[in-house]
Simulated scan of single mutants.
Amino acid sequence: MIHQKRTIYNMSKKALLIIAIAVSVVACNKTTTNQVKEAKTAYIDTSELMKQYTEAKDLEAKYKAQSEEKGRQLEAEINRFKQDAANFQSQAQANGQEWAQKRGAELQKREQQLGYAQQQLAQQLQQESGKEMDSLVSGVKKFIKDYGKKNGYAYIYGTGDAASVLYAEDKYDITKEIIKALNDRYKSEEKAEEKKEEKK
């Protein structure tokens, strides 16, 4: 009988412990759920941001102009080479085999040099624009971080090329706000630069 009472007592003790654990788990879940509900979140379409951000557009235009300018010089040399190559075929029979071999070797060497020059130009522009673009991107990330802190966001996600959000309601989209804020900052920095230049 005493043994039975002890077993019942131990069982009720265990049951109370299980109930206490269950209650604390539910309480924790409620707290977590409340915290999640209170968290201010938003997302930015990073592709749209880079399309509409004035500094990014200016950077793209700068390197497009450089590419066209340097490409024109190279294109003139390529056109001269094409003309010489076309003339070579018509002159080869008239000038004999020895001339054709010598001239052919010269043209081949020129073709290789032009190919190398094209490669070098592309690499140079890629490296220069890459450095500036990396600097721009890290500046944008810092701006978004500061913007998030200032405006009380718990999370700001990114969608677009490097998507980390698979779905979000449109009301959480702050892309336009960020674009406007970034463009305003860029304009004010440009004006400050112009004033510095005027003072010089």
Rank of each mutant, 00 (worst) to 15 (best):
K187V: 09
K171T: 06
E68C: 03
T159V: 07
S129N: 06
K70M: 14
E193H: 08
K171N: 03
A65F: 02
N29I: 06
A56P: 00
Y63I: 06
N34P: 03
K131D: 12
A20G: 14
I178K: 02
K149L: 15
C28Y: 15
A27G: 12
A181F: 00
K141T: 11
M133D: 00
K51Y: 08
K195P: 00
L182M: 08
K102R: 10
T33H: 11
G160I: 06
A61M: 06
L114D: 00
N29E: 11
L121V: 02
N10E: 13
T7R: 11
I18P: 00
L17I: 14
C28N: 11
K14M: 12
I8A: 03
Y153A: 02
G104T: 06
Y155F: 14
D84Q: 15
Q108L: 09
S188P: 02
Y53P: 02
Y9W: 15
E68L: 10
K62T: 10
H3P: 02
L114E: 01
M133V: 12
K180S: 13
A65E: 03
R103A: 01
V165K: 02
V165D: 01
I18H: 04
K37E: 12
A162Y: 08
E48V: 15
I2E: 07
A42H: 06
L182H: 01
A65T: 01
K150V: 07
